[in-house]
Amino acid sequence: MRETKFKLDWLILPLLGIGAFLILWFAFTKTVSPDLPTPGKTWELSKTYITKPFEKRGELDQGILRFTWLSLVMVAKGYAIALILGTPLGFMLGISKTFAKCFDPLIQILRPVSPLAWLPLGFVIFAKAKGNVSEVAALFTIAVCSMWPTVLNTAVGVRSIPQDYLNVAKVLKLSRTKTLFRVLLPATLPYMFTGFRLSLGIAWLVIVAAEMLTGRPGVGGFLWQEYNSNIPEHIILCIITIGVVGFILDRLMSLIEQRFRTA
């Protein structure tokens, strides 16, 4: 009895929440903002994008999963750069007090800078770069913005390695590389993955902004274009897509994170 009730809870309650939200949304379109499309109309105009998610009709007229895929590829590249740079940087900050003292203030200053500020700088830096300048600038922005949680969490992780583990490494006289790969790295891994998860969240935030500013095809680019073509239904479609994808990414990362936490 109790079992079945509990089972329904996790399904019914969120549906209830969404239902209430849809009603509010509908009421809003009828009262405050007649320009806001109703939920029904949004579905009407968006359904081809959802039912044929992989169709390509034009550069900025593609199925929603196709756009999502394009955005995800960009995120993956920028995120990979962020991790490749951020993890060693975090390690250095964690291991060396001198290094930390040198660079900590700098990091604290660079960290809060918005992606909107980095992007133009990316264009300037990579103006003469081979290939697609807007792509390189976008990657630069994603990497620079999303790297900090990885850097800081890795540094904290290294600093909080229990002295016991280091003592074992010392008594066994492990070489530097062995100490790094058999002791320091495994001991820091749970912290690193927390950083990785937060970084991915930021990378996903940044890609949308970067696409909007560069007009690159992707969820964010599509959103901006549809704003310019005055199709607000598609803006809503994009917002929902961004939210759902971000949620799924976060879930996936926290699953991985959980595995390392218990290890």
Partner: peptide, 19 residues
């Protein structure tokens, strides 16, 4: 002058590597 494996230690709190 430095620790080494010729002096093995059984630590008070075991100090096993949990991974």
């Amino acid at each position: 002058v430095e620790p080494g494996p010729d002096r093995a230690v059984v630590f008070q709190n075991y100090s096993l590597l949990p991974w």
